[in-house]
Simulated assay, not measured.
Amino acid sequence: MPHLGGQRPGYLYIELLAYQSGTRGDNPMSKAVKFLKDDALVKVSAYYAGLEPAQPTAISVARPGPAKPDPAGAGKAATAGCAGCHGETGITKTPGMPSLVGLDPKYLVSALNAYKSGGRKHDMMKTLVSALSDADINNMALFYATQKPARAQTPSPGKPAAGKAAATACAGCHGDAGVSTNPSTPSLAGQDAEYFAAAMRAYKDGSRSDATMKAPAASVDDNAVKDLAAYYASQQPRRPAVRKPLTTAELAARCDRCHGVNGNSTDPRSPALAAQRADYLEPAMRAYQKGVRKSKAMTAMLDGLADAEIERLAAHYAGQRARSVVFIILPPK
Score class of each variant (00 low, 15 high):
Met1Asn: 02
Gly10Asn: 11
Leu17His: 13
Ala18Val: 07
Tyr19Pro: 05
Thr23Glu: 15
Arg24Gly: 03
Lys31Val: 13
Val44Leu: 14
Tyr48Asn: 02
Ala49Trp: 01
Ala54Phe: 13
Gln55Cys: 05
Ile59Ala: 05
Val61Ile: 13
Arg63Phe: 07
Gly65Glu: 14
Pro66Gly: 14
Pro69Ser: 10
Pro71Met: 02
Pro71Ile: 03
Gly75Asn: 14
Ala77Gln: 08
His86Lys: 07
Thr92Ser: 15
Leu100Met: 12
Leu112Ala: 02
Asn113Pro: 05
Gly119Tyr: 07
His122Lys: 09
Met125Tyr: 14
Leu128Cys: 06
Ser130Thr: 11
Asp134Ala: 05
Asn139Val: 04
Met140Lys: 07
Phe143His: 13
Phe143Glu: 10
Ala145Trp: 00
Thr146Trp: 06
Ala162Glu: 12
Gly163Leu: 08
Lys164Pro: 00
Ala167Phe: 00
Ala167Cys: 00
Cys170Asn: 05
Ala171His: 00
Asn182Ala: 02
Asn182Ile: 02
Ser184Arg: 05
Phe196Asp: 06
Ala198His: 09
Ala199Tyr: 02
Asp205Ser: 14
Gly206Asp: 00
Gly206Thr: 00
Arg208Met: 15
Ala211Pro: 05
Met213Arg: 01
Pro216His: 03
Ala218Phe: 09
Ala218Gln: 10
Asp221Cys: 12
Ala229Arg: 15
Tyr232Val: 02
Ala233His: 01
Gln236Arg: 14
Gln236Asp: 08
Arg239Val: 12
Thr247Ser: 15
Thr248Gly: 13
Ala249Phe: 03
Ala252Pro: 00
Asp256His: 12
Arg257Ala: 13
Cys258Thr: 13
Cys258Val: 11
Gly260Cys: 06
Arg277Tyr: 06
Leu281Asn: 14
Arg286Asn: 04
Arg293Leu: 09
Lys294Trp: 05
Ala297Ser: 09
Ala297Gln: 02
Met298Gln: 10
Leu302Cys: 06
Asp303Trp: 11
Gly304Lys: 02
Asp307Val: 04
Ala308Lys: 03
Ile310Met: 02
Arg312Glu: 04
Leu313Lys: 08
Ala315Ile: 07
Arg323Met: 02
Ser324Asn: 08
Val326Asn: 09
Pro332Arg: 11
Lys333Val: 04
Lys333Cys: 03
